[in-house]
Design a protein around this nucleic acid. Sequence first.
RNA 1: GGCGACGUAGCUCAGUUGGUGAGAGCGCUCGACUCAUAAUCGAGAGGUCGGGAGUUCAAAUCUCCCCGUCGCUACCA
Length: 501
Amino acid sequence: MPRIYLTTPIYYVNDVPHVGHAYTTLNADAVARWHRLLGDDVYFLTGTDEHGLKIQRSAEENGLSPIEQADRTSVRFRETWELLDISNDDFIRTTEHRHHVAVQELLTRAYDNGYIEKNVYEGAYCVSCEAYYTDDELVEGNCPIHKRPVEQMSEDNYFFRLSAFADRLEAWLTDTPDAITPDGYRNEALGLIRQGLDDVSISRTSITWGVPVPWDEGHVFYVWYDALINYATAVGFGADPERFETWWPATHHVLGKDILRFHCVYWPAMLLAAGIEPLPRFHVHGFLLVGGEKMSKTGINKIAPAELVADFGVDGFRYALLRDNSFGPDSEFSYEALLGRYNSDLANNYGNLVQRVCTVVVKQCGGVGPPPRPDSPLAVVATAAYRETAEAWDRFQPAVALDATWRLIRETNEFLARNEPWKMEPGPEVDAIMGDALEALRIVCILASPAVPTASATAWARIGMDGAVGEQRLPEAAEWGQYPGGSAIGAGDPLFPRLKA
RNA sequence: GGCGACGUAGCUCAGUUGGUGAGAGCGCUCGACUCAUAAUCGAGAGGUCGGGAGUUCAAAUCUCCCCGUCGCUACCA
C-alpha cells in the first residue's frame, strides 16, 4: 500500500495561532485527506516547539515554570486545529520524553561520526532571535530584526560541521528534481549551498530549558536543532527502529519559505551526519500578504482563525484559504477576498447546486433520486475533473485541484440550465437528467471533501448516499455511474448561507 | 555589490519543452430563465503579456539591457 508521512512545522509556543499557521496546517491536512481517499497509509503530524531562552524568559515574566508556560500555548494550537477539523494523527511536543530520547540519539550519532565538535563562541546575542550577530550586522548596536539591544555573550559551544556536507547536499538537490517543490525553492536551496556553508553552533550553556547534550553536562541543544528532530521522533526514531524504517522513506515536510534554510539545508545535513537516509521531500509555500506585507509583520496576525471561522464556518475558511492562495508563491489575503470566494464558490455554486437538485428531485421525481445514465454528457466532464483534480493534489496544488473539481459543479449547473427539467412533465426524461446531476454531485462530494469535509458529508447524506464520504476509495469511487438511485431525498437548509458584505 | 524570484485583463491569478487570432474565476454591462441561497445560464466590454533591443519562419514563453517590487547574502574604498 502506498504510504505517506506528512508533517507541518512545529509551531513555536511564544506565539499564539494565527492565519499563517492555519494556512500551512490546512494545506498539509487537505493533502493528507486526499491521500486517505486514495487509500494510502497516511501519518499526519503537527505539534509545538517549546524549548529555548525565549520561553524560559516568558515563563519567568509570568511567574510560571517553563513547562507551564509551554502548556498554555501548546493547548491553544491543539484547540485551533480541532476547530479547523485538522485530521492529524499525532501532536508532538518537543518537551515530551520521546523527543528527548530521539534528539539525544540522533545527535550522538552525528557526534560519534565526527560531525559535532566543541569550540568557543562569543559575540552579540539577541534573545528574541536566539541568534548571534556579528558587529556589522547590528543596526545602531541593536538586533537588526527586533531593533532591541543585544547582549555580549561567550560560551563553549558544540558546532555542527555543516560545511562538510556542501557537496552531498548539492548532489542531492541536483539529482533529485522533486526533492523540493515548487521548483523555485529548490533553486533557492541550491543557491544557499553554493554560496558556502559555515559550521553552526548547536548548543548553549547559558540556558537550561532544552534537551541536555548527553555527553557533556551543562550543555543543552539550541532550540532549532532539537526542533527539527521532532519529525524523526514522531515515527519512532531511537525507540522503534522498525516503525521508523516504515515511515521515514515516505516523509514529506510542508513548510513556509521563511524556514527553508533550516529545513532544506541544515536538516538534511543533520540527517546525513547521523547516517539517516533517504532524505525527506519538502513542499514550500510563500507568505500570505496583507497589502503586500508579510502576515506576521502586520496587525492581521492578531486575527485568530477562530474569528474567521465564526464568520465563514470551518469549511468556508478552509476552502477560501486553500482555493485563493496557490501553494508556492506569495499571495494576497483579505477578508473581502474570503467573502467573495465563499459566496461565489460555496454559496452560489456548490451549496446552491445541492439545493436546486434536491428541490427538483422532490418536485419532479417524487422525492426519490433516480439513477444516472451511463452515457450522460456529464460523464466525460466528471472523468476529466477527476483526472485534473488528482493530478493537482499529487503536485501539492490544492488551489488547482479545487478549481478542477469546481469545473464539474459549473458544468452541472450549465447542464441543468440547458435541459430545464423543472419545465418538463415528470417521467423518464426528467429522471435521467436528475440522475445525472445527482451522480455528478456524488463525485463532487468526494473530490471536494479534503477541503470541505463537513459540508461534503452533509451533502453526501442529503443526496441519499450511505456511508461516509471520507471513506470512499479513489479512483474507483470517481468512476461515472455509481449513484444507486432509489434513495429518498428531501429538502434541507442551505449548505453555505450566502453572506452579506 | 553578488545570487535569486517576481512584474499577464478593474481584482486575484493560470499559462508544460517558444507555434492555432493571449486564458480562468471574480467584478462590470446587456440579455435569458425562475428549480435554486436576488442563486443559475448566455452574450459582451476590458490586456502594446513592466519597458527596450536581439535570436527565430514564429516569443508572454529564449538572450541582453533598463525600470519597479521583494527575498537571501556579502560588504564598502
